[in-house]
Amino acid sequence: MDPRFRVDLIAATPNPQQCVYAGMHQDYSEGFVAADRADWPDETKAGEICVKRLLAGERGHYGPLEHAQIVLNVGWFPHSVMQQARTHRVGVSFDVQSMRYTGDRIARAADGDLDLEDVFYLRPVGDYSDRQGKKYHYSPELRQQDLELCRQAAARYRDLLQAGFAEEHARGILPFDYRQHFVVSFSLRAFLHFMDLRAKLDAQQEIRELCDLLWPHLQTWAPEFAAWYEKSRLHKARLAP
């Protein structure tokens, strides 16, 4: 995994499994469930009950999972990951560096003030295959050629800005996989949905690595749901709920 890739927690519902429990419980309760909060199960037990009643046996009652929310900051991933992450109906909110207001780092890399690989992503040297199984080797020499193309593009971008070109015009000459930071918010349901779509074993390498960094946050935040998901759905490429 690229050592620059990073996912940090910004905020999260502090009792997500109890929130799911409350939503589920209100569905079939005569009373006002918040009035009985002292009688709710604790966070761990709430998670166990919700998994059993909502998800076990592929019951698929995912609606109550939408009440719990988590916000994460994702850093230094290539633009292709953002392209994939926003494809399909994921029910997720993104705020992403636009490259209209955030191109200074490219010019700084062109001037040598930043490492080129801080702003452009290239896969590591190694053996790869395409989705049809055709194998190829990405050699140090090929990678160095690509890095030189990134250097030239960064210099051209800097020169265009200095010549008065608009950022949205100048960015058109940049390699596709410039790095971007973004903030993303998931409901618990959307988190599982995203993992169904993007953690499958034949997904693009970089988005699988994003899922690898997302996963510990889910385990810490909603451990009973994460344990059920790991056993029942993780990497199995099932259709998302």
Rank of each mutant, 00 (worst) to 15 (best):
H61A: 10
N15F: 00
V51L: 09
V90K: 05
G57D: 03
L72E: 07
Y121Q: 02
M99G: 12
R59E: 08
N15T: 08
A35M: 09
W76S: 15
P64Q: 02
V96P: 04
Q83W: 08
R105M: 06
D27Q: 15
S98W: 02
D42G: 07
P124F: 01
T13H: 09
F32T: 13
D39A: 13
M1D: 03
T13K: 04
D36A: 13
I70L: 06
K45P: 10
Q17V: 06
Q17Y: 09
N15L: 01
V33A: 12
M99A: 12
D2S: 14
D27Y: 14
E30Q: 10
L54A: 06
V7I: 03
L122K: 05
A109P: 00
H25Y: 13
G63E: 15
E66N: 10
F120E: 09
C50I: 00
F77M: 08
R89A: 13
Q18S: 12
D27R: 14
V125G: 03
P16I: 07
D118E: 12
E30F: 12
G63A: 15
F120R: 01
D95K: 12
E43H: 00
C50G: 06
A35N: 03
A56P: 02
N73S: 13
G60H: 06
M99E: 10
C19L: 14
F32K: 15
F77E: 03
R105I: 04
D111A: 02
G63V: 04
A85N: 07
A11P: 00
A68D: 10
P14G: 09
D113Y: 06
W76A: 15
R59S: 08
F94K: 01
L122S: 00
N73L: 13
G75V: 00
A38W: 04
L9W: 07
T13R: 08
T87K: 05
F94I: 09
W40V: 04
V92A: 11
L114Y: 11
F32C: 14
